[in-house]
Design a binder for these strands. Structure first.
Length: 422
DNA sequence: TCTGGGGTCCTAGGACCC
DNA sequence: TCTGGGGTCCTAGGACCC
């Protein structure tokens, strides 16, 4: 509201993983490549020209593009180069909101006195990322976050699009609704059913119609985006609201042993990350996806926040059992997931206090909360010194060739602790 | 097309309280 | 006893994003 004349940059590295691979190995440049194996994690623009997309199965990608080269991921390099690119934004303004490993907003409203007009700042950012890191990056410049994001998508690949104040609607109107943030395949189809295909058509639609079609919140929000009334500010230090982990399993019989093994592994990942960030959570949610791809969730809210591996494992196994009991016909599962929400931030000292669970004392043979916590801390310390694989669950316990490398799991974290500045 | 892993936000019904 | 309104929390599901 105060920022009527805000100037926002949205910077987005192009085909990021694939670009890094082409940077590291010059023989891959100009060729269609995909990062991944069983599934495409990222495709180069040469591969995208054949219709190859992220999330696509490797087999399908090869059908579309027989010359496609699959490359193994250099995950450490992705993190390093992603951090470095975001670091260039930090040189321009402290108001940087990182959205993922390869994408961030920057509010440069107050930077123009030092660095010149916003388009010049955007060009300088692009030039530095290209010269110093060797990577293409697209930038959108506009008066709101949402429009800057749309502009950077229009700018791809390796481009800059500036939407001058006052020209927003002219820019937006002809674009397909799919470019708006929050419009996916389902919403796109619903809108198309009523004849709405462009943002202009969306902006002209009756608010009442949109609310009826998409629900009150989504309808109002979308209507606002269509007329560029986006009130959000760039937020720096956002903290995650939940932490989770999942594993695709192919097709496995849902035995008790599978539940214990898998949730032991997943809870270990989640709990370790939570403790490293000094966080604990009360709500535990389990997702069970059956062989037919239908999935259900079960959740429970505990009396106190937890971050111990064993506690999360036990609760997750219990929840999964109830989900399976509710669907007795489903004997095989294709994915198991656990996440912890209702997070609180605990000072380290307070985390030392055992967070008791009802039943802790009553069940003979189960470790008490204090003991659980002590075990976790010991493991955390050993891993800090000797690496994650040195103790505890090994990823290989689960991997049957379908899984994604352990290193990749670390990347998708929103506030992964590797971020620049702060 | 037989689908990876990490998240956010919204909806809707029910329980419970004042 | 019946009725009303408002608020919060919990649970399950779904769309969407990178």
């Amino acid at each position: 509201m105060a920022n009527r004349a805000a100037t926002i940059l949205h910077a987005d590295l192009d085909a990021f993983y694939a670009s890094v691979e082409q940077l590291l190995d010059p023989s891959l440049r100009g060729r269609p490549i995909a990062v991944g194996g069983g599934v495409v994690l990222a495709a180069s623009y040469e591969a995208k020209a054949f219709g190859v997309q992220g999330g696509m199965s490797g087999r399908r990608a090869r059908e579309l593009c027989p010359d496609l080269t699959f490359v193994g991921g250099h995950f450490g390099e992705y993190q390093r180069l992603g951090d470095a690119a975001i670091g260039v934004l930090h040189d321009v303004t402290p108001l940087v909101e990182r959205i993922s490993i390869d994408e961030a907003f920057a509010d440069v409203t107050g930077s123009v006195h030092l660095f010149g007009p916003a388009p010049a700042i955007a060009e300088a950012v692009r030039r530095r990322v290209r010269d110093e890191l060797g990577l293409p990056i697209s930038v959108g410049v506009a008066t709101t976050k949402h429009l800057a994001k749309v502009a950077s998508q229009v700018a791809k690949p390796d481009g800059l699009v500036v939407v001058e104040a006052g020209t927003e609607q002219r820019f937006l109107d002809p674009l397909p609704v799919r470019l708006l943030w929050g419009v996916g395949p389902v919403t796109e189809a619903k809108l198309a059913d009523t004849g709405i295909r462009t943002v202009g058509e969306l902006a002209a639609a009756q608010p009442e119609l949109l609310r009826r079609l998409l629900g009150p919140a989504a309808g109002s929000k979308l209507g606002s985006l269509a007329v560029n009334a986006d009130p959000r500010h760039v937020e720096t230090g956002r903290r995650a609201a939940s932490m989770g982990a999942q594993s695709a399993l192919g097709r496995r019989e849902a035995t008790d042993e599978l539940l214990h093994t898998t949730f032991g592994f997943l809870a270990d990942r989640v709990a370790t990350r939570m403790r490293a960030k000094g966080r604990a959570g009360r709500c535990i949610t389990v997702r069970v996806r059956f062989a037919g791809m239908r999935s259900v969730t079960r959740s429970t809210t505990l009396p106190a926040p937890v971050s111990t591996t064993l506690t999360i494992t036990e609760v997750a196994v219990d929840l999964a059992r109830t989900a399976l009991a509710d669907h007795p016909r489903e004997r095989e599962v294709s994915l198991l997931a656990v996440s912890v929400s209702q997070l609180v931030t605990e000072p380290v000292l307070q985390l030392e206090l055992p967070l008791g669970l009802p039943g802790d004392e009553r069940r003979p043979g189960t470790p008490r909360a204090a003991d659980r916590w002590a075990v976790d801390r010991s493991i955390d310390r050993v891993r800090d010194r000797f690496g994650r694989a040195s103790v505890g669950f090994a990823a290989v316990a689960l991997s049957d060739g379908h899984g994604v490398p352990d290193e990749f799991r670390e990347l998708a974290e929103r506030d992964g602790g590797h971020g620049p500045g702060q």
